[in-house]
Simulated assay, not measured.
Amino acid sequence: MPQSNQLKNYRHIVLLTDGYSTPFLAKTAISLLRYRRGDVAAVLDVEHAGRDASEVLGTGDGVPVVDHIPPEADALFIGIAPPGGKLPGAWRVHIERAIERGIDVVSGLHDFVGENSNFVALAAASGSRLIDVRRNTEKVAATAAPFREGCLRIHTVGHDCTVGKMVATLEVERELKSRGRDAQFLATGQTGIMISGDGVPIDCVVADFVNGSAEALVRRNEDHEILLIEGQGCIAHPSFSAVTLGLLHGSAPHGLIYCYEATRQEVKGLENVPLLPTKRLMEAYEMAASLRHPCQFIGISMNGRKLTDEEATVELERISAETGLPACDVYRDGAGPLADAVEQLQREQIS
């Protein structure tokens, strides 16, 4: 994406969550607080001004919540990912004030800030940049040309949307890097792009080019030893299965990490549509992925946010016994077992 380097260069980001500072809606802000903590200057939410971000959003210790954009700000990031991706009408005044001061505005919403005529006029006068991370010009079909030998590709997949695929991918990258490994996270969604500064907004790519854009993303990064490719959707989701399959075939992974949220029973956003059993889904993933490239599951990432510590321990033992794979809750325990599995697969690929 043309703005990728610009995204990574911001060092005084203000996260706009005004009136939407909940774990469900402010997922983007929460992830940026976790993974770009050093670049965040403040969270903007008038109601909670004066508090600490960790009190309001559960993370970001030491980041103040404010009712205005502080003087040092160099970018205003839209910190929410609401259903439908619409920009809240009440936020226009915050955005206009930022633009008037020449501050860049970065948004991952479907409702592009760069298509608002008033924002565009103000930006033309101030020099502010309006960056929509979902806007893209991907128009390349997949070729199935082989990737560099020695580039191990690991892809996270899930039993549903919003189960922690991005977090699991980032945590495995963090753990592998702590071991001195050349691992690289590849973002395929707006929040991941805002964290890493690069990637492809796969849910806004024209259908014919989903596979090709994923393939091209891998190709641009295949000089790394290990690629960790963020998953999207679910292969069985009635609404969003297309991007899941496109990522499987475009990135041609060697290994898969299965991500799920404990206690979830129904497909997100669709009432009375039950989730498929774990083993059936895993078989479907392996079969679909292997149509393009030999592939296998290597581990399980459990999202245990609704479980107590004791319940999480029992659930991890259960899913590991059911699948025969190492399992962990990366929030509670880190990604050590999954990083071990990646390194084991790499040794098997080399031998």
Score class of each variant (00 low, 15 high):
residue 18 D to E: 10
residue 250 G to V: 02
residue 206 V to C: 00
residue 155 H to W: 00
residue 169 T to H: 02
residue 205 V to H: 00
residue 154 I to P: 03
residue 127 G to K: 11
residue 140 V to I: 11
residue 261 E to W: 06
residue 42 A to P: 00
residue 239 S to D: 11
residue 227 L to H: 03
residue 251 S to H: 01
residue 175 E to N: 01
residue 24 F to E: 14
residue 231 G to S: 08
residue 337 P to Q: 01
residue 104 D to E: 06
residue 313 T to M: 00
residue 141 A to L: 15
residue 4 S to A: 12
residue 157 V to K: 03
residue 158 G to S: 13
residue 194 M to S: 11
residue 128 S to T: 12
residue 28 T to W: 07
residue 87 L to D: 05
residue 350 I to H: 03
residue 254 H to A: 05
residue 336 G to E: 08
residue 135 R to L: 12
residue 204 C to D: 03
residue 8 K to D: 02
residue 98 A to I: 06
residue 192 G to L: 14
residue 88 P to S: 11
residue 71 P to Q: 14
residue 344 Q to W: 04
residue 113 V to A: 11
residue 342 V to M: 07
residue 94 H to I: 12
residue 84 G to A: 12
residue 73 A to H: 13
residue 117 S to D: 09
residue 285 Y to Q: 07
residue 10 Y to G: 08
residue 126 S to V: 03
residue 315 E to S: 04
residue 351 S to K: 08
residue 132 D to Y: 14
residue 23 P to H: 14
residue 215 E to F: 05
residue 157 V to H: 04
residue 239 S to P: 03
residue 73 A to S: 15
residue 23 P to Q: 12
residue 312 A to N: 10
residue 245 L to P: 04
residue 221 N to F: 11
residue 109 L to S: 04
residue 310 E to I: 00
residue 83 P to A: 13
residue 241 S to C: 10
residue 72 E to F: 15
residue 200 V to I: 13
residue 11 R to G: 11
residue 253 P to L: 07
residue 198 D to T: 11
residue 114 G to T: 15
residue 312 A to C: 09
residue 285 Y to M: 09
residue 165 K to A: 03
residue 180 G to S: 11
residue 312 A to S: 12
residue 351 S to F: 08
residue 144 A to Y: 11
residue 332 R to N: 09
residue 289 A to R: 02
residue 84 G to P: 01
residue 175 E to S: 01
residue 210 V to Q: 02
residue 69 I to K: 06
residue 82 P to E: 10
residue 347 R to L: 06
residue 315 E to F: 11
residue 125 A to K: 11
residue 45 D to V: 03
residue 168 A to G: 07
residue 216 A to W: 09
residue 74 D to M: 13
residue 38 G to A: 15
